[in-house]
Design a protein around this nucleic acid. Structure first.
Length: 319
RNA sequence: GGCGAGAUAGCUCAGUCGGUAGAGCAGCGGACUGAAAAUCCGCGUGUCCCCAGUUCGAUUCUGGGUCUCGCCA
C-alpha cells in the first residue's frame, strides 16, 4: 500500500465565547489561510445573529467555508459536512493556501479528523418518524425492548430514554437488515485524510459564563427576535432541526406567548452555559498541543504563540 | 402602630400526624458512529431564623424575639 499524503490542517478548538473567531481572523490573515467553519449552526443560511456569524464584509476579506451552505429546512448531517470540507480543502491547497479550522462542534471534528463515522449507513426520515410515533404511543421502554431483540449489545449500550440513538439503531436495522453493532464490527470508517493540529483555547468558567451572558444579551439587542420572526414567517417551522438550537427555541416560545422576554434571555444564557460544558467534555479528550488561557495571556503574545505553532505545523507538512 | 402570612439547599418551594429532610431550577461530572446548539445518564448535610419551654427526643408543638411580605391604620 502506498503511503498517501495527508493534508496538513490546524484547528482552533475551545468552548463557545472563548474568543476563537477573533483570533482566527488574525491568524488566517498572517498565514494566508482560508477558514473552515466547524459549526453545525452556521451552515444554515439566515441563522446569523444567533450563531454569531462573521460579517459578509469580513468574509470577503478572509474566505470562509461551510457557512451558509444549507437552507434551514434542509436535512444537513455530519456526512454532508465532511464531504463539503474535503472538497473545500482541495480547492484551498490548489490555490496554495492552507486551511484553518475554527468552530465549536466537537462531533464534526471527530468525524472529520478521526474518521469515526461508519460509511454507507443509510437513513430514512420516514422510518424515524415511524419509530418516534411508536415511542409516543407505547413508551420508550417498548422501543428499547424492540432493539434488545435485534441488537442486544447496542441495546445494552444505550439508555432506554436516549430516543435519538435507539431510533437510529432501529432505523439502520430496518433499512439494511443488519444490526448497528454488525455494521460497526465491519470497521468501515473512513481513512484519515488530515495531519491535524489542535490548538486549545480556554478560560476559567466563571469568566466564560460572564462573557456568554453578555453576548446573549447583545444578540437580543441586535435583532435576534426579529431574525426568528422572519424565519417563522418564511416557512421555516419551529420543528426543524435548525430551529432547535438554544436561543431559537426560547424565542419561539416567547413569540408564542409562553414566556416573557427576560425568561427567553435567561433560558438562552443557561442553555449556552450548559453547552459550553458539554463541548469541554469532548475537547478534553482531543489533546491539543496546548491549552491557552485567553484570560491571562496578553492577546499579542497569544496570537504570536498560535501563529508560531501553526506555522511550524504547516512547514512540517510541506517538507 | 394593629391584624394576617411566612422564614427549610445558591434560587423557588414541598415535607416531617415529634425520631435531624427532598423536588424543580442553578451548579458539577459523564456518554456520544448520518438530527450533535441535538439526545441522554449520574451527583443533594443544609446552624430546617434565634432563644427558652414541653418531651427520652423539637426543624416539626408552645411561648418570646428578630426579620420579610401583604392588608388595615
Amino acid at each position: 500500500m502506498s503511503e498517501h499524503k495527508l493534508y496538513p490542517a490546524v484547528a482552533i478548538i475551545g468552548p463557545t465565547a472563548v474568543g476563537k473567531t477573533g483570533l482566527s481572523l488574525r491568524i488566517a490573515e498572517e498565514l494566508n489561510a482560508e477558514i473552515i467553519s466547524v459549526d453545525s449552526r452556521q451552515v444554515y443560511r439566515f441563522l446569523d445573529v444567533g450563531t454569531d456569524k462573521v460579517s459578509p464584509e469580513t468574509r470577503r476579506k478572509i474566505i470562509h467555508h461551510l457557512i451558509d451552505v444549507a437552507d434551514p429546512d434542509e436535512h444537513f448531517t455530519v456526512i454532508d459536512f465532511v464531504r463539503m470540507v474535503d472538497d473545500a480543502v482541495k480547492r484551498i491547497f490548489s490555490r496554495n493556501k492552507v486551511p484553518l479550522f475554527v468552530g465549536g462542534t466537537p462531533f464534526y471534528y471527530k468525524a472529520l479528523f478521526e474518521g469515526i463515522i461508519s460509511q454507507d449507513l443509510p437513513s430514512d426520515p420516514e422510518i424515524r418518524d415511524h419509530f418516534e410515533a411508536k415511542a409516543r404511543e407505547l413508551g420508550r421502554t417498548y422501543l428499547h425492548e424492540l432493539l434488545e431483540k435485534i441488537d442486544p449489545s447496542t441495546a445494552q449500550r444505550l439508555h432506554f430514554n436516549d430516543l435519538r440513538r435507539v431510533v437510529r439503531a432501529l432505523e439502520v436495522y430496518h433499512i439494511t437488515g443488519k444490526s448497528l453493532s454488525w455494521w460497526y464490527s465491519q470497521d468501515n470508517t473512513s481513512t484519515p485524510k488530515y495531519d491535524f493540529l489542535y490548538l486549545g483555547l480556554n478560560r476559567p468558567r466563571v469568566d466564560l459564563y460572564e462573557i456568554i451572558s453578555r453576548r446573549v444579551k447583545e444578540q437580543f439587542a441586535s435583532g435576534y427576535v426579529e431574525e426568528v420572526e422572519w424565519l417563522l414567517g418564511n416557512g421555516f417551522g419551529k420543528e426543524l432541526p435548525s430551529m432547535q438550537g438554544f436561543g431559537y427555541r426560547e424565542i419561539v416560545q416567547y413569540l408564542e406567548g409562553k414566556m416573557c422576554l427576560d425568561e427567553a434571555i435567561e433560558g438562552d444564557i443557561r442553555a449556552t452555559k450548559a453547552f459550553s460544558r458539554r463541548q469541554m467534555t469532548w475537547f478534553k479528550h482531543f489533546q491539543p498541543s496546548m491549552w491557552y488561557d485567553t484570560s491571562v495571556l496578553d492577546s499579542g503574545v497569544l496570537l504570536q504563540n498560535l501563529l508560531n505553532a501553526s506555522k511550524e505545523h504547516f512547514e512540517r507538512g510541506q517538507s
